[in-house]
């Protein structure tokens, strides 16, 4: 398998030894190039922590994260930041944009941070890709929530990253705008061969992915290829019930 991201035996605990909380408890998986993966699980299953560790936003307590065969643990904070800037794209649930910058400035920010002058053609292309070419001089506050998320996706795509991580990108959106955003992500995978990893708790959102991995209590508990919303929902219901039965402190 041509894996862009590979995580091996990932563990992450918060707090001290005695009172600590285990958020990830030995997760091993990989994400193939040009694939769209959804990470699912009930609240407190460790899916956000998993995303943060895999994306180099947080450092695991133990275990390995390989991005294009580069071990993230070997990198200093600054090197890790550069790697995030150049090779990883992010879309968060909200507060993605700097409110003082226009759409265009927000999108080109990662390039400017890297000291590169954004090529107008590239910027136009990316903005067109998310359908916001006309709004490029607007401030984020003048856009709807869905539009703001599309700007965030444009920003994440502008550096042509190896992988795009999205943390509940549709969590704050209504069904219709959510569909636009998810369609956009799907299109970037199909059209440009982008690799996307998305954390979500919404079975409909997960159905856009090629593959769904299920987390519960910090462990990988299942996988589903070519998911449909119904099957995912069904699995989630069981997962929830299963998680309720297990009396551990593994909640974040």
């Amino acid at each position: 398998m041509n894996a862009v991201v590979r995580v091996v035996d990932l563990r992450r605990t918060y707090g001290g030894r005695d009172t600590g909380v285990t958020a990830l408890d030995g997760v091993t998986t990989a994400f193939a190039r040009a694939s769209f993966t959804a990470v699912m699980g009930p609240s407190g299953s460790g899916k956000s922590t998993f995303l943060h560790c895999a994306a180099g936003l947080d450092r695991p307590t133990s275990g390995t994260v390989l991005l294009e065969d580069q071990d993230l643990a070997e990198l200093s904070e600054t090197e890790l930041t550069r790697l995030r800037r150049d090779r990883i794209g992010f879309v968060f649930q909200a507060f993605n944009l700097l409110p003082a910058l226009t759409v265009q400035d927000n999108v080109t920010l990662p390039l400017r941070l890297a000291g590169r002058r954004p090529k107008p053609a590239l910027v136009r292309q990316v903005l067109e890709q998310v359908g916001l070419a006309e709004r490029r001089r607007n401030l984020p506050a003048e856009l709807s929530g869905g539009q703001q998320q599309r700007v965030a996706i444009a920003r994440a795509l502008v550096t042509r990253p190896a992988v795009l991580f999205a943390d509940e990108p549709t969590g704050a959106l209504d069904t219709r705008t959510a569909a636009e955003v998810l369609g956009l992500l799907r299109a970037s995978v199909d059209g440009a061969g982008q690799t996307v990893v998305m954390v979500t708790h919404d079975p409909v959102a997960a159905a856009y992915a090629d593959r769904v991995v299920f987390l519960a209590d910090g462990r990988l508990v299942g996988e589903l290829l070519d998911p449909t919303a119904e099957v995912v929902a069904e699995r989630m219901t069981h997962l929830g019930a299963w998680a309720d039965r297990v009396p551990t402190g593994a909640r974040r």
């Binding site: 936003l57 904070e77 600054t78 930041t81 550069r82 995030r84 800037r85 150049d86 992010f90 968060f92 507060f95 993605n96 700097l98 920010l109 990662p110 941070l113 890297a114 920003r155």
Partner: peptide, 16 residues
Amino acid sequence: QRELALLRAIGTTPRQ
């Protein structure tokens, strides 16, 4: 704080 954290997340180095 939040703005700075966002900048960090999208690739601003501590030095920057």
